[in-house]
Design a protein around this nucleic acid. Structure first.
Lengths: 250, 250
DNA sequence: CGGGTAATTGAGCTGGTTCAATCTGAGTGG
DNA sequence: CCACTCAGATTGAACCAGCTCAATTACCCG
């Protein structure tokens, strides 16, 4: 929960940038706008507060962000994780106020685009607009999947789903090989993501391990060893889910 | 759960149509596209199934729709209600597959736009594109609010929030006067919306009535009699919430 | 070695579920 | 007009999944 300042970096470091599954390099005018707004931010930094007025769109280049809401009594619900290529757009209906918090889960490299600039970029690059649409559609699909489990699923089904979702999302980023991946998360994060207490996340995860569904190492290196059973518990077909929640190449 | 065919109507009946808070009339070319695709559908008709391939965007002209997901064992989660002026866009990341069900809650008048046509309409009418953005932003804001309560809120807070949300959304449609409004819903709907059982919805609603927070008549005419307390329970400031979840006029 | 954060495990509690019975009101057919 | 049906609402009683509280352990970092 530290909240130090962002460290501006040499933006020239960024020679290409991914939005969804599309790569934007020096041939795209958009890249310059992205580069002008690149920042490196430390883990746990809160980038935007729910209700804040200066709304910006944040494109993740590297690292993990999360969007979240919190209740008056301090309980947190993670709405979505934002991985490289994802776009955190906090804008709510009035077009000014942020409808959620955006925070860096890990140290991250991001591009923070003022809303006006973002709209111009979308208008000028149909390719970017298309990429944006895919990314937004993927997010919508994830949200409804998760909402179903939040409202109707057991703890097992919520956690199984979360593991599978993250596994599938990390795969196209080259961060998940053969159902093995690293989550830079605490059990509290997973609890805040699934609407459970950290204690119950722990119990459920242990049970998965005991039953041979997953293996864990080093406190968050996960390997799904029985995807069949796990996806039954999650109530999901992995192939179909991947198509629905992962932006495809153009 | 009836599933009869849609009844095509004289589309010439529709002389203007609202998207979000913006009115589209004969001066807008978009109106013709809307009119060409108008349908009247009966209550409980399922308009689109999760996973279906022929994706269409549905604009609500009159009546209530709902988007939903259901689990293998038949449990339903309502993702969002779509009221007049709302746009149900079921598209998931692959751009083809529907990521949720769309069903008519009441008899409804809708315009069903093929995805390709919709994209053309957006490209040709910047005003429509802007309206669409506001409507989408409003929906996103609602989803995160609800997700917070689904994951972290008590039954009381979920139901209080649902009542306030619907009250606020109905107001600009002229369907909510002075915190009194009609919900064309069963307690089961509210349960599916809030992730609770119908039985518990009933108990909680009765408790609200006993405590003088709301009055009910005729099985779903609601009047919020103590908005202060109810919004405390919901964990919400009504004015701010209205700005975030209700599309504003241009 | 000390201190702090995260994970783990146990024990008991509780909010919401489940199951079941009753009640209500709007058809519907005779 | 009444009898019958059917969907929804209401209420009671028992149960249980996940929570809370609390103690212990593991691990990292200075």
């Amino acid at each position: 929960m530290t909240n130090q300042g962002a460290i501006p970096i040499q933006y020239t470091n960024v020679t290409s940038l991914r939005v969804g599954a599309m790569e934007f390099d020096s041939r795209d005018a958009a890249l310059n706008s992205f580069r002008r707004n690149v920042q490196r931010v430390p883990a746990n930094k809160i980038l935007l507060h729910d209700g804040e007025h200066n709304c910006k769109v944040i494109v993740v280049i590297d690292g993990w962000l999360a969007t979240s809401k919190s209740s008056l009594n301090g309980e947190v619900q993670l709405i979505d994780f934002m991985l490289p290529g994802d776009i955190a757009d906090p804008t709510s209906a009035d077009g000014k106020t942020a409808g959620l918090n955006i925070e860096a889960v890990t140290e991250a490299l991001i591009s923070v685009i003022p809303l006006a600039v973002w709209h111009r970029m979308l208008a000028e690059s149909p390719r970017l607009a298309r990429a944006n649409e895919h990314v937004q559609a993927a997010e919508r699909a994830r949200l409804s999947e998760r909402m179903l489990r939040l409202g109707r699923g057991s703890a097992e089904s919520r956690i199984a789903y979360a593991l599978i979702e993250l596994c599938l999302r990390l795969k196209p980023l080259g961060l998940s090989e053969n159902c093995a991946f690293h989550l830079p998360l605490t059990q509290r994060h997973i609890g805040d993501f699934t609407g459970l207490t950290a204690v119950h996340v722990c119990r459920t995860l242990r049970r998965f391990v005991r039953n041979g569904l997953v293996e864990t190492a080093d406190h968050m290196d996960i390997r799904i060893t029985d995807l069949g059973t796990l996806s039954d518990i999650a109530g999901v077909e992995p192939e179909r889910l991947a198509a629905e929640i992962t932006p495809l190449p153009d």
